[in-house]
Amino acid sequence: MATTQLTTSSISVRNMVSFEGLRFSQVQFPCVGHVRIGTLTQRSFRGIVVKASTVVAPKYTAIKPLGDRVLLKIKEAEEKTQGGILLPSTAQTKPQGGEVVAVGEGKTFGKNKVDISVKSGEQVVYSKYAGTEVEFNGTKHLILKDDDIVGILDTEDVKDLKPLNDRVLIKLAEAEEKTAGGLLLTEATKEKPSVGTIIAVGPGPLDEEGKRTPISVTPGNTVLYSKYAGNDFKGKDGSDYIALRASDIIAILS
């Protein structure tokens, strides 16, 4: 492939003043003949150095979250299935868990101050797309509000999740395997169930004075909840779970 060298005589731009005093560098491009922008009047650029731009991230020695915010170290996404199959980056699920690194001073309601509901070292699960990601000490971290943390999870099984604030953990009912006419449904056509059993409940939301209001459902209740609410999880036993706010529960079934 033919190449041409760009020199001060082969680059021209209309109505642009000359750049004086800069050191000149020759750059080769895969093209034929002289490079000219349209049929513009020639005024040369003298001494332009062409370089690739580089964005350098600032280095931090400490991050202190303020107010009701929490700093988490993000848990890395799974790179393999349970059977050992490597997952491409497009198939890896966005991590929703992390370790608490630091917490803010809490939130004030009138004259009452409420501390953050988690502490450093705890493993937690948080809402999708919550918070702001930052690079710190060579790893990805997340700064988010205390209310965006779904619960504390000390094990690898979601059934052990301890919900925080106004959230509840629900084990979903089994999806229908057949239609009313007896036809078997594929996984893709099974409707997402919106009925399940309460497994655990949080301490309740905060009122205007910073006091907890108990949640109106208890473990063991069978409930109907709003579709597409909350965060979905898969338990180690293969069961489906969802963590959502108590306000997303529509009714108690019996």
Score class of each variant (00 low, 15 high):
Phe109Thr: 14
Ile143Ser: 11
Lys171Met: 01
Leu153Glu: 08
Asp148Gly: 01
Leu164Ile: 13
Val114Glu: 11
Ala102Val: 06
Thr108His: 01
Gly104Val: 00
Lys94Ser: 15
Lys119Trp: 04
Ile149Ala: 11
Ser120Glu: 10
Leu144Gly: 10
Ser127Cys: 10
Val158Arg: 02
Gly106Asp: 10
Val134Phe: 06
Lys140Pro: 13
Leu153Phe: 00
Glu105Met: 03
Gly151Leu: 01
Asp160Ala: 03
Asp148Leu: 00
Lys140Glu: 15
Phe136Met: 11
Lys111Ser: 15
Val134Cys: 10
Lys171Phe: 00
Leu172Gly: 03
Ala102Phe: 03
Gln96Gly: 15
Gly106Glu: 14
Lys113Arg: 05
Thr108Tyr: 02
Gly98Tyr: 02
Tyr129Asp: 15
Ser120Cys: 09
Gln123Lys: 04
Tyr126Asn: 12
Lys107Pro: 06
Asn165Phe: 03
Val134Arg: 04
Val168Thr: 05
Lys119Ser: 08
Asp154Glu: 09
Val114Thr: 13
Asp154His: 05
Phe136Arg: 14
Ile116Leu: 11
Asp154Trp: 01
Gly121Glu: 02
Pro95Asp: 12
Ile116Arg: 09
Asn137Ile: 09
Gly98Pro: 05
Thr139Arg: 07
Val124Ile: 13
Leu164Trp: 06
Pro95Arg: 03
Val124Tyr: 00
Ile143Lys: 04
Thr139Tyr: 04
Val100Cys: 09
Val101Met: 02
His141Gln: 13
Asn165Tyr: 10
Thr139Leu: 05
Asp157Ser: 07
Asp157Lys: 04
Val118Ile: 13
Val124Asn: 02
Asp115Pro: 08
Pro95Thr: 13
Leu142Cys: 09
Asp166Trp: 02
Glu105Arg: 00
Val124Glu: 06
Glu135Asp: 14
Pro163Met: 07
Asp147Ile: 15
